[in-house]
Amino acid sequence: MTVTSCAAPDQAAPIPASVDLEKETVISGVVLAASGDPVAGAYVRLLDRTGEFTAEVVTSPAGRFRFFAAPGQWTVRALSRFGNGGGEVSVDRGVNEFQVSVS
């Protein structure tokens, strides 16, 4: 199979060695409940500068998420059975790390 999927890869896995962090803009982080505990199975959506949906992933058992985007302004929004949360972020090439609280 040469066709890769449009589904999200394992959010807990390390960034593959084939990914060039000189070129990629990674938006990653953790979703936390009001208690401060990480939220597994939350839906994290990436919206572009116009508010249009761009991607969505499900958090890992440790509450982790990761997107591959481009430098600029984005909105990260999390939905979960414990509530919703999120906000605007400004990112550059390399790894950009965020915490998203839901309540």
């Binding site: 990629e24 761009t54 481009a70």
Partner: peptide, 12 residues
Amino acid sequence: GRLLAPAHLPQE
């Protein structure tokens, strides 16, 4: 053409 794949995937 600003992205080549959905943003949860590497862009190469």
